[in-house]
Design a protein around this nucleic acid. Structure first.
Length: 645
DNA sequence: AGCACGCCGACT
DNA sequence: GTCGGCGTGCTC
């Protein structure tokens, strides 16, 4: 049977075009095409050709009407493998977006020169016809529903691990212990002839993995960085596509790598917000990995120093196996004497400096608009509702929750009457500490001006949370200041984030280093000291359950004009677990936002209903086209809204 | 998105 | 009598 007809998925963000179109294949094109081929197709009356990919070939057509021909076979390299297509399809459906938005993430832009030299290699010659759409990843039983099949998976295959929070000697240097964990697991897979996808939040972590992988001499390591020039990205894409086991190291997009025979997907520190895709499919790499895992049946490892509420939920529903690496917990202490830098802090810094570098973590600067007491730095709270105060444009203290003015408020801790915005920044702390520890080198690292790595000599490092440099052999001491401020950030994830920031900072300690946290006490402080991350995650998830917040339930947001939102509200209100909040104001002045609370079990139905609404409002009715002229998307759907409030 | 088809107001 | 406004709908 000749392949005279091709089913093509079109690479466009338009939801109306998110379906397969059939085209006639000409005689000359027959030998060039295969499943996965990149083509250009005519669509509608537009003279502009659209990019697409062949997902199936057949001898007969299903479509009754007149068929158009494939306009152009762009390349003979099969860029869209069947399992990546299935993954993109599932993600588009789950997120209620067009598949084109997902394809953009999954498939690197073509670079002709790179592709030519790749295809010229004899070992890549057979790749052209390597894919059969009916045979998605034969190496493991495929399953369509992740949750339904979880019981059938060997427990050890899916795990959420708490990694050893230490810097260890490894690969001829010093690395965080998790780097060793990831590369060892990937190496195991390589030995079995399988590929691994190692997914990290940012390029610092990526560099660490790449550097250590190179030092170990691991074969077929793919630098799947999105920060490279286009041709390098495409080279990495092709390297993963080559039919041999590879170790793909990258950020979010690495989940979609077209690797051969994937045996492991590993996610590092899934609580880091960099794992959220900020653009259209708006999916978290952990969720994308879960979908891919369920489709191809590979191992899944979600590892971190602290545990996200999402990972904890997956453990509690029995979907993930709970794996805690054996390690000695760090030597930690907490204090809460009411000073920003107290006796414990000074003592820990002084003793640490005797043997090596010392890290002082200060609260993240810049993202706090709340007001604090000038004298004692405790957070200013509303006298009416205990909400956080801020200073308005006239400098008057106002509640962020109930808008009440709080003129002449007194600090509840010290009675102070002066307020200031934000907290003492890294620079001020650096100056203060430099005075106390005269003669010691002081290094400052913040989100803006970041230091990546420091040596083993004694030095005082002042860093904002999340911007801590690595110390070559680990820190002799780590001191956390402003713990209260981190806990009091205006987000529902404040506690989880704080525990994560602290855990990651303590994880930079050397084997014999000591840590101290200033400003946390009691039961909570003890759990930090005894490294009870699982217990903390359990409590955090319980809190979210009580409040009915994610990840206990899911929380979607829909942004559009009011009329559209009204129509959407009534369309989805029949779905069992759906509860609608709003319309609420959104960041864009002319648009409003709906928050939708729903159960996991209703996700598919809600996504399908929302998608139908997008189609309804997309090509007919109210086209939102404000004076800007730009065709703003009339409806923006995030099936999981990471930042409520 | 594009692009065409279609049914109502001021022009050579 | 026609030209053209953009509301509506389709695209293999």
């Amino acid at each position: 049977m000749s392949n005279s007809f091709a089913k093509v998925v079109v690479a466009t963000p338009l939801p109306q075009l998110d379906r397969l179109f059939e085209y006639r294949v000409t005689q000359e094109q027959q030998s060039l095409i295969a499943v996965g081929t990149r083509v250009k197709v005519p669509l509608g009356r537009s003279k502009q050709l659209l990019d697409g990919f062949i997902v199936a070939l057949a001898g007969t057509a299903e479509y009754q009407g007149e068929l158009a021909e494939l306009a152009e076979v762009v390349s003979e390299t099969p860029a869209l493998t069947p399992d990546v297509y299935q993954l993109c399809r599932a993600i588009a459906d789950r997120q209620a977006v067009a598949i084109g938005d997902v394809l953009r993430l999954a498939i690197a832009d073509r670079s002709v020169a790179v592709e030519k030299s790749f295809m010229a290699l004899p070992e890549n010659a057979q790749i052209k016809h390597a894919f059969d759409p009916n045979e998605i990843s034969t190496h493991n039983a495929a399953s369509s529903n992740a949750l339904a099949t979880s019981q059938n998976q060997p427990a050890a295959l899916r795990s959420t691990a708490l990694a050893n929070p230490r810097v260890v000697a490894f690969a001829g240097g010093y690395y965080p212990a998790w780097v060793q964990l990831f590369l060892e697991r990937a190496h195991e897979q390589s030995q079995l002839g399988k590929s691994s996808l190692l997914v990290v939040p940012d390029f610092r972590d990526q560099h660490l993995l790449l550097e250590a992988a190179q030092a170990l001499g691991l074969a077929n390591v793919v630098n799947y960085s999105t920060e490279q020039v286009k041709s390098k990205r495409y080279a990495a894409f092709l390297q993963a596509l080559a039919q041999k086991p590879s170790i793909v190291i990258g950020s979010r997009a690495a989940v979609y790598a077209p690797s051969h025979q994937i045996g492991l997907i590993a996610i590092w520190d899934d609580g880091d917000s960099n794992h959220w895709e900020p653009n259209s499919p708006y999916i978290h790499s952990r969720e994308a990995a879960l979908i891919r895992q369920s489709q191809i049946g590979c191992n899944l490892l979600i590892a971190s120093h602290s545990r996200s509420a999402e990972a904890q939920r997956l453990v509690e529903i029995g979907y993930l196996n709970d794996e805690v690496a054996s390690f000695n917990r760090p030597n930690l202490a907490v204090s809460d004497e009411g000073y920003r830098i107290d006796g414990l802090a000074y003592k820990t810094i002084r003793e640490g400096l005797a043997s090596g570098p010392v890290l002082v973590q200060v609260g993240a600067k810049g993202n706090s608009v709340s007001a604090y007491c000038q004298t004692c730095s405790s957070r200013a709270l509303c006298k009416e509702c205990n909400g956080p105060l801020w200073l308005d444009s006239k400098g008057q203290p106002k509640c962020r929750w109930c808008n009440a003015f709080n003129l002449g408020s007194e600090c509840r801790d010290c009675g102070g009457r002066e307020l200031r915005l934000g907290q003492a920044g890294a620079t001020r702390t650096a100056t203060e500490l430099a005075k106390t520890f005269a003669g010691v080198r002081v290094i400052e690292s913040t989100g803006d001006v970041r230091v990546e790595k420091i040596g083993a000599k004694p030095a005082l490092v002042i860093a904002t949370a999340g911007a801590e440099p690595l110390a070559e052999q680990g820190y002799a001491a780590v001191v956390l200041l402003d713990c209260q401020n981190l806990l009091a950030r205006d987000t529902l994830r404040a506690t989880e984030d704080a525990v994560r920031f602290w855990s990651n900072a303590f994880a930079l300690l050397s084997e014999h280093g000591r840590g101290a946290a200033v400003g946390i006490a009691g039961d909570f402080g003890q759990k930090i000291v005894f490294w009870q991350q699982v217990q903390l995650a359990r409590e955090e998830l319980e809190t979210r359950r009580e409040l009915a917040f994610a990840p206990a339930v899911r929380l979607a947001s829909v942004t559009a004009v009011r009329e559209t939102l009204d129509s959407i509200s009534s369309a989805i209100s029949d779905i069992k677990s759906v509860r609608i909040l709003g319309p609420l104001p959104s960041k864009e002045p002319e648009l409003l936002r709906l928050l939708i609370r729903y159960e996991y079990s209703d996700g598919a139905e809600l996504a399908a209903t929302l998608r139908a609404q997008v189609l309804l409002h997309g090509s007919t009715g109210l086209r939102v086209n404000p004076k800007s002229g730009r065709a703003a998307r009339p409806i923006r759907i995030k099936m999981d809204e990471p930042e409520v409030i």
